[in-house]
Nucleic acid binder design. Structure first.
Lengths: 211, 211
DNA sequence: TGTACATCAGTGAACGCGCGTTCACTGATGTAC
DNA sequence: TGTACATCAGTGAACGCGCGTTCACTGATGTAC
């Protein structure tokens, strides 16, 4: 039987979340994770430095928790998108709009992922790359369900999914750079991203397996 | 009239280069630029910390010099590639081989660029993004010279060039991860990259300006 | 329910360390005559 | 060519600072009877 958490456990989880949020907030500015200090994080979270060790062994462990948190939100969005219908014609347009909205709503998480994907700490870098590879596999599976693509070989589906994902990842950079008060910039960026995805789909319609 | 540099100036340039090389070497490991200290760089270069200031105002200035150096090499490769012939059929295959060879030969520079493109210091990040934007523009111009594409609008050429560049940038990540002694991994990676670029070209052959 | 003890999230002082930057310096190279 | 002075790349000591981590602690929450 699972007991409901008492006030002590609740407060502990709150502090843990405060530490994660503090790190994200500091990371949203100039800093990269590697240059973020344990003391800065606890200061921002409003606890004493030593309290950190009640929640994480070191900064790496906190970073991995941030990776988890970031991809959890992304997977939820993907699941919602998958369960929707497929009008095909509007599919690209809707997916782009959903994606851009999601990234802007979770900008601190994506900023973190984008920086640390190529960044310093190998434990964090590898965790992010593993998640991205998983994301590519899932997208490849989804693509294979389309009538036009279900005769494709697995490796060709992965190749195409990789192309789509690298286009999306690159778009995240542009999305994060969007100034807050200029919707026309966001529109232009979305138009370009949509065109790029359509170009890929056009290419797929002519693709012949190259064996 | 320009005097030839004396022994003093020559030695100074040598130390400057030693500092740049030291930073690159340290960056090739676990560290990101933001976590790299001035003292570490001078230690690796074999000079005293204060000698640093004879060459750079601070670490940012050294970082910008590394950006310059990295893109200088890349532009030289591009220029060489542009001056070659265009067999069209083998064009993608040859370009991919040239690109992969160049990245592997300059792996430390590309590691630096890839990390700092999304990384901490805004001065360096902006310098890298400006160079990439320039690279996209040049590629768009080149693409516009192909008979099949010379009726395209400038913005569509830029859109396509952006797609190609984000594919290449993403490929750099994979290239840098290639283990040294496994040529079959490199082959597979190149095959995938080639397929992705061919897919884009196929899409381009069907593209209709969307006005 | 009331009491006595155990747990443990968060505190606060202390430590040794590497950092960026300052300063006065040394001695080889450069320049003027 | 030789001499006397100027330049300046690199040295070495010193500084104050924020860092990660240790330790013994406090007091609210949890548990057993």
């Amino acid at each position: 039987m699972v007991r409901p958490p008492g006030p002590r456990e609740e407060k502990k989880q709150k502090t843990r979340q405060a530490l994660l949020d503090a790190a994200l907030t500091l990371l949203a500015g100039e800093q990269s994770f590697a240059s973020l200090s344990l003391r800065e994080v606890t200061r921002e979270a409003g606890v004493v430095p030593t309290a950190f060790y009640r929640h994480f062994r070191d900064m790496d462990e906190l970073g991995l928790a941030l990776v988890d948190e970031s991809f959890h939100a992304l997977r939820q969005m993907m699941r919602a998108a998958r369960s929707g219908t497929l009008p095909t014609e509007q599919l690209v347009h809707r997916s782009v709009a959903t994606f851009v909205t999601h990234v802007r709503a979770n900008d601190r998480h994506f900023q973190f992922l984008l920086r640390e994907r190529a960044g310093g700490r190998s434990a964090i870098r590898n965790a992010i790359r593993t998640e991205i590879r998983l994301f590519i596999s899932e997208l490849a599976t989804d693509l294979g369900r389309f009538p036009a693509l279900n005769a494709w070989r697995t490796e060709d589906l992965r190749m195409m999914a990789g192309l789509v994902v690298s286009t999306l990842v690159n778009a995240v950079l542009d999305i994060l750079d969007l100034p807050a008060g200029r919707p026309e910039d966001a529109q232009e960026m979305m138009t370009v991203l949509e065109s790029q995805l359509r170009l890929i789909l056009l290419g797929a319609s002519l693709w012949k397996r190259g064996d």
